[in-house]
């Protein structure tokens, strides 16, 4: 189970909260039905909710609006649960190269890139957005783009992500006067 350091990967999400909610819903539904069936078998009256549901199911036809709407909602919910079961999750994190199991969040990589960009000359402000394969940095000011690209590439290499990000740089005029170094 121990991953090689070179192929450190983001683990698949455990889907704990979603699993807990689905388990709770199933438990409540089956528990209530079990209680009511047992009550009826021991000579008590059926609960009003079950009588109501059985009546609705027996009188509403398949083309009624309520039935179709409920089926639509159930289909969407089913698709979403299937997506949760299949998709890897943990999209917030990127794997670091070196110790196995070490992750850094994408906003953290963006913060490091911004901090490095703000150290450059003629950069008044910087905004970085990082998704899972690309980092987009917007520099405000009149910085030299080639130099900035070299510096930010070096910063990404210093962070040492397991799968390197592609760097996209763009320049915008400063909203205010840049500090003169």
């Amino acid at each position: 189970m121990t991953a090689e350091p070179s192929e450190n990967r983001v683990p698949r999400s455990a889907r704990g909260p979603a699993a807990g909610v689905v388990a709770l819903v199933v438990l409540v539904a089956s528990g209530a039905l079990l209680y009511d069936v047992a009550a009826v078998r021991t000579g008590h009256r059926a609960g009003a909710w079950r009588v109501r549901i059985a009546h609705e199911l027996a009188t509403r036809h398949l083309d009624s609006g309520w039935v179709l709407a409920a089926a639509g909602v159930a289909a969407a919910l089913g698709c979403w649960l299937l997506w949760l079961a299949v998709a890897p999750g943990n999209r917030r994190w990127l794997a670091l190269m070196r110790p196995p199991g070490a992750l850094i969040d994408r906003a953290g990589v963006a913060a490091l890139l911004e901090a490095r960009a703000l150290e450059l000359t003629m950069v008044a402000d910087a905004r970085a957005r990082v998704n899972r394969d690309r980092a987009r940095v917007t520099l405000f000011g009149s910085a030299d783009l080639a130099g900035a690209e070299a510096a930010l590439t070096a910063e990404l290499e210093r962070i040492a992500l397991a799968s390197p990000l592609r760097l996209r740089l763009r320049n915008r005029p400063a909203k205010h006067r840049p500090p003169m170094h």
């Binding site: 699993a19 689905v22 083309d63 179709l68 289909a75 299937l82 949760l84």
Partner: peptide, 24 residues
């Protein structure tokens, strides 16, 4: 968790598709 979530989703989806196919 993933197997059971997928099972719950599949049950919901198949039931809902049967109702939709019949209703429409």
């Amino acid at each position: 968790n993933r197997v059971l979530l997928g099972l719950a989703g599949l049950v919901l989806l198949v039931g809902a598709l049967l109702v939709l196919a019949g209703g429409l």
